[in-house]
């Protein structure tokens, strides 16, 4: 047998990388199941099953190519979508989300590697715009104890509503029943994936250790959010909340660690990754503080996804040789 050099190959495969992403998501998923009970589990099951099945069907019958669902990328999309939905969302909402994510955002562009926008986020945003009621009916963390869903607002929505009613930050949180420690561990209302900061950070550490992702994007997003929030807070602590709150709520961590780092829709080299991250961080904070949505990272990531080809074209990696 003959082939051009090299004759050795590393152990990385698409499947292995995707499997690692799933493993990294598991702690956060486990926490959400612990707090939200069957609702979270059911959403995830529907989402993953429909995503994988849809990709298989499209590849087999529409594109007539050998199905490649075994590379697990559809499963990752499904899980990420589930982590972005409120636990206990109706099954038809989830189904709509996965059809949008896989059918429209991924396969219509040619499948894995070709989609310009993060499929899970497209799914989520379409749902958010189409079904605002179902998408903002957040279950409160009650665990498996009760079956009837008690719903409430997320901390960010609470804050936005309060500010719009002319209250100061302090007044709003006098009535709120959560602490930063709870934000860290996840006993708050929110979508499945955004509740436990600590579990998400554990996943981040795992991805870094396995060299699945590089730290540039998450770190630059978080740093931008913190800096942006910090400046506002320093200017007017009555109108704006402190940066730590911004970091721990509203899926910033989920977005920064798992959504923005999606290979296909992020830049290819450190310089570009940092530009991308700063863009996402700044847009998120603009939407949060000045926009009408309480939460902005999904939109921010999708907007920056559109800028990725441009970033790749102009931000080049460090070359070995300086001059031509």
């Amino acid at each position: 047998m003959v082939s051009p050099a090299p004759h050795a190959h590393g152990s990385d495969t698409t499947r292995r990388l995707m499997r690692d992403v799933i493993i990294a998501l598991l702690p956060a998923f486990a926490v959400s199941v612990w707090f939200f009970g069957w609702g979270a589990l059911q959403v995830a099951a529907v989402s993953i099953a429909t995503c994988v099945a849809l990709e298989w069907v499209i590849q087999k019958f529409l594109l007539r190519t050998p199905p490649q669902t075994s590379d697990l990328s559809a499963a990752v999309t499904g899980l990420l979508l589930a982590m972005n939905l409120p636990p206990g969302a109706p099954w038809w909402v989830v189904l709509t989300g996965s059809v949008t994510a896989i059918g429209i955002a991924k396969m219509s562009f040619g499948g894995i590697g070709k989609n310009p926008f993060n499929p899970a986020l497209v799914g989520r945003v379409v749902l958010l715009v189409s079904f605002p009621v179902q998408m903002t009916r957040w279950a409160l963390p009650r665990g498996f104890a009760t079956t009837d869903a008690v719903t409430g607002a997320t901390p960010l929505a609470l804050l936005k509503e309060g500010l719009n009613n002319g209250l100061t930050v302090e007044q709003i949180f006098d009535n709120a029943d959560f602490t930063y420690l709870e934000l860290l561990f996840g006993r708050i209302g929110g979508s499945a994936g955004e509740v436990s900061a600590l579990a998400l950070l554990a996943g981040f550490a795992y991805l870094l250790a396995r060299r699945v992702i590089r730290p540039y994007i998450p770190v630059s997003i978080l740093a931008t959010v913190a800096a942006f929030g910090g400046i506002l807070w320093w200017a007017n602590p009555e109108r704006f909340i402190d940066p730590l709150f911004h970091l721990l709520t509203g899926g910033v961590l989920l977005g920064a660690i798992f959504m923005a780092t999606d290979y296909v829709t992020s830049p290819m080299h450190p310089k570009g990754m940092i530009i991308f991250g700063i863009g996402i961080g700044a847009l998120t904070m603009l939407i949060r503080t000045f926009g009408s949505y309480p939460e902005g990272i999904s939109f921010a990531i999708l907007i920056m996804n559109a800028a990725v080809p441009l970033i790749n074209k102009y931000a080049k990696p460090k070359r070995y040789a300086r001059n031509v």
Binding site: S73, G113, P267, K316
Partner: peptide
């Protein structure tokens, strides 16, 4: 010895990271 079957580029940038000359093989 056998090369594995090629699939779609997932734009993971591992080639860019590995290139000792700072090039972008995928491009």
């Amino acid at each position: 010895a056998q090369r594995r079957k090629a699939s779609n580029c997932i734009r993971c940038a591992k080639c860019v990271q590995a290139c000792p000359m700072g090039l972008e093989p995928y491009l």
